[in-house]
Design a protein around this nucleic acid. Structure first.
Lengths: 155, 155
DNA sequence: ACTGGATTTGGAATAATTCCAAGTCTTGAC
DNA sequence: GTCAAGACTTGGAATTATTCCAAATCCAGT
């Protein structure tokens, strides 16, 4: 089976990500990141562990958790948490949205039209939507006040 | 301290919700639902338990989980899960979106303009947004096929 | 080759939730 | 009103997901 993602690409991406934070390039990080890129189906840590361990039997669960956190910090993957249950991981860094299937609990990427930014136009056929919401992330007013206050004078 | 939400309103809502599914009106369900309505700050099951237990000491954690699930099924509250950590619950049934604070992990409702449906116009001052995405819920093509196939002929 | 710090590992510990069996309460039939 | 059946609640055990920890290993720079 041919790899969908060439290993050079994996290495380059990983190196770029790690370089930003001064972290080391290791065999485990490479292997786990590669595992994530080969099958982009939003696996849980457990699933990543099983897939990666198949080719690297010494790998430990702790390393998988550590590495996933590292990759998130490096901006190479994103955490996806839209329901009760294990956190999943997403290696698609393109701007996109998510569809959560209420039947099988599957997570699907919904791509964005790069021109307009409108996601609806790319909703693939066959999906039926029962609910949607926008999720914003950032800093709330109270925490913004704390950060600003701490930085400057505070009577 | 005056209750923000009159108990009659709580009872009526709860009765309506339970009636749809043939479930019983109980003291515990009433008390837990009332607890959720009095302070709409997206509490976790643990927080609901502590608040509710203060006035109903016999209450058990299992009942809190059972009741929260029941209320979700009745459509009286919504689960909110946007990060690793305990599930939170939202008793605001108006159409709205959510803001997740990366600093304090707080969840805030972002109301929707009932005219346009545009959330941005109601983003309260002081929030700074670092990222946003749309979350769709529904049924994926594969599960839709299964459901349709099972209902009609298949061969 | 050597040292310090980063990384990995296995297992213990914790957190969040679910499961379970026993007891209690409610409702409807009589 | 009494009784049985089923719904509901409870405490605790079990499970799942994740984090913590200390020891062993690895790596980069000297």
């Amino acid at each position: 089976m041919a790899k969908k993602v060439p290993i050079d690409f994996v290495d380059e991406r990983l190196n770029q990500g790690l370089a930003k934070t001064g972290l080391r390039f290791t065999a485990q990080r490479r292997h786990i990141y590669n595992t994530l890129l080969q099958k982009r189906d939003h696996p849980s840590a457990e699933e990543v562990f099983m897939r990666a361990k198949a080719e690297m039997p010494e790998l430990s669960m702790a390393t998988v958790y550590n590495t996933l956190d590292t990759l998130v910090k490096c901006g190479l993957i994103r955490q996806v948490t839209h329901d009760r249950g294990p956190t999943r991981y997403c290696s698609n860094l393109q701007k996109h949205h998510h569809f959560y299937c209420n039947e099988c609990n599957g997570v699907f990427d919904i791509d964005v039209d790069p021109e307009t930014g409108e996601p609806e136009f790319h909703m693939p056929p066959g999906f039926t939507i029962s609910h949607w919401e926008i999720l914003f992330r950032g800093v709330c007013p109270e925490c913004n006040a704390k950060k600003n206050g701490a930085g400057s004078s505070r009577s």
